[in-house]
Design a protein around this nucleic acid. Structure first.
Length: 468
RNA sequence: GGCGUCGUAGCCAAGAGGUAAGGCAGAGGUCUGCAACACCUUCAUCACCAGUUCAAAUCUGGUCGACGCCUCCA
């Protein structure tokens, strides 16, 4: 398996630190509002990476944090006149709901920054002892960036360029030794929440959280650290500096970063008015569609989002689900149990698509190619399978589709929906009308149901319906 | 200004030296009471220019265009 490592900008063979196990950390959201669809991309993409690793038999320890203390959270709390905890708790719950609808698996551990303050104090102390950090008069603690010789190895920046390119830096509080130094701990302002520390009453800087949580739940050295490409600098660069300066070990072996999600070819931002939360999209589409859409491109490519593209994704996904439904329906009426010779040949032929799918995912998680393998399997199934197919073949084919879709986190089983009695009666009435060749009444009923969002399809296996 | 990514059909998107996967949309057809589903057929020489090579969408150089990071941001 090859993975693209941002550290050296090359695809590398994936070799875990410990055989059969993968330690993986994904930077999670700051919880001050509903998550937006940009937040959803790394969640979906790295959940898929995890699922593939698990499919390969790895035991994956997957850690993803929630940043629950931060300026934006405090700001929101002040606006609403409630505590920051109330804000963060609320949006953690909402975020988990969205993740469930996106079929993103729960992390092995979802640590919260505010629960890890002790670890942060300890790491900051160690950094000060080792000379990698210093406190200034007002109690702010800075990381001594130039002291860490490898600084810039992830983002491929050098400190002199950074310094030259630096625009006016708004330094609050006491002056730092060097303008490239960054904050590890900062003093509280006014009634902000705070924790006691040897330096001042205050709270942690953003970067230190992830270094500490990764170390606590996964250890000093991990296999994969992932997040959005915008985190490469400064967030991940700073994490490397903190962790490696503190632990004296390589922090993470592979760094994976997903490309950005744009809206109508522009960066998503509130000021442009092209900002969508996952919740909003969920009102118009099953979030499976959003997931399928995101996986239709390579995770490192920028991905554009628009209504048309969502429609296309919806139709494509529908094609896959319809094929699976068809196989399932055939199972109800199949006469033969065991595969015939002919069936066995069909089954063998289908293995080609699993192979193609695996080869795609092996190559830096190329889900776009993986999806195309599923489409080819769908076409193959639609063509090869019929009323004479054996139960064994049908089950195997369904299982194969299900396995591949499950790696992508796509559910083949449609949600069970209970038809209201009225709708059932209408469908029955329509069947009678059709039997008596009263097609006018039949079509009328179909239109009535269509208006209720129910689409009917007459197939050989009987009447089927689905939500529009 | 520094660092970096990308330009493949109407749209989305793989492919990374050997003669363009897959999907959506469209067109024509088969099936169906009609429709839907499904199936069949059809739909590109890869931004441009110049090189390297027996061979380039794939390598090199240049041009144009789009975008990202350098500041909170997934």
């Amino acid at each position: 398996m090859k993975v693209y490592n941002t550290l050296n900008r090359k695809k590398e063979e994936f070799i875990p630190l410990e055989e059969g196990k993968v330690k993986m950390y994904v930077c999670g959201p700051t919880v001050y509002n509903f998550i937006h669809i940009g937040n959803a991309r790394p969640m979906i993409v790295f959940d898929t990476v995890r699922r593939y690793l698990e499919y390969k038999g790895y035991q994956v320890n997957f850690v993803s944090n929630f940043t629950d203390i931060d300026d934006k959270i405090i700001k929101k709390a002040v606006e609403e006149g409630v505590s920051p905890q109330e804000i963060s708790q609320r949006y953690i719950a909402e975020c988990k709901k969205d993740m469930a609808d996106l079929n993103v698996k729960e992390a092995t551990t979802h640590p919260l920054a505010t629960q890890e303050i002790d670890g942060m104090l300890s790491m900051i102390s160690t950094l000060i002892e080792k000379g990698f950090a210093y406190a200034v008069e007002d109690g702010t603690v800075y990381f001594r960036t130039r002291k860490f010789k490898e600084y810039g190895k992830l983002s491929h920046k050098n400190l002199d360029d950074l310094q030259a390119g630096h625009r006016e830096i708004k330094v609050t509080g006491a002056a730092k030794e060097d303008e490239v130094d960054f904050v590890l701990w900062k003093p509280k302002k006014d009634d902000e929440p705070y924790w006691e520390s040897p330096w001042c009453q205050g709270r942690p800087g953003w970067h230190i959280e992830c270094s500490v949580m990764s170390k606590k739940y996964l250890g000093e050295e991990i296999d994969i650290h992932a997040g959005g490409e915008d985190l490469i600098f400064p967030h991940h660069e700073n994490e490397i500096a903190q962790s490696e300066a503190c632990n004296g070990k390589l922090f993470a072996k592979y760094w994976l970063h997903n490309g950005f999600l744009n809206i109508d070819n522009r960066k998503m931002s509130k000021s442009l008015g092209n900002f969508f939360t996952v919740r909003e999209i969920g009102e118009k589409y099953d979030l499976q569609v959003l997931r399928f859409f995101m996986l239709s491109a390579h995770y490192r490519s920028p991905l554009n989002f628009s209504a048309d593209l969502m429609e296309a994704a919806k139709n494509g996904l529908e094609r896959i689900l319809t094929a699976a439904d068809h196989v399932k329906d055939l199972m109800k009426n199949t006469k033969t149990q065991q595969m015939t010779e002919e069936d066995a040949a069909v089954w063998n032929g289908s293995l080609e698509f699993t192979k193609k799918f695996e080869e795609a995912l092996e190559d830096d998680f190329n889900t776009a190619d993986g999806v195309s393998a599923i489409f080819e399997l769908v076409k193959y199934s639609n063509t090869k399978v019929n009323e004479t197919s054996s139960m064994e073949l049908l089950e195997k084919l369904y299982e194969q589709m299900n396995t591949l879709c499950d790696i992508l986190g796509i559910l083949l089983e449609r949600k069970e929906e209970i038809l209201e009695e009225e709708i059932e009666n209408l469908i029955a009435e329509r069947q009678n009308a059709r039997k008596e060749k009263n097609f006018a009444r039949g079509d009328e009923i179909r239109d009535i149901l269509l208006n209720k969002g129910i689409v009917l399809e007459d197939t050989r296996e009987g009447v089927k319906w689905k939500r529009a």
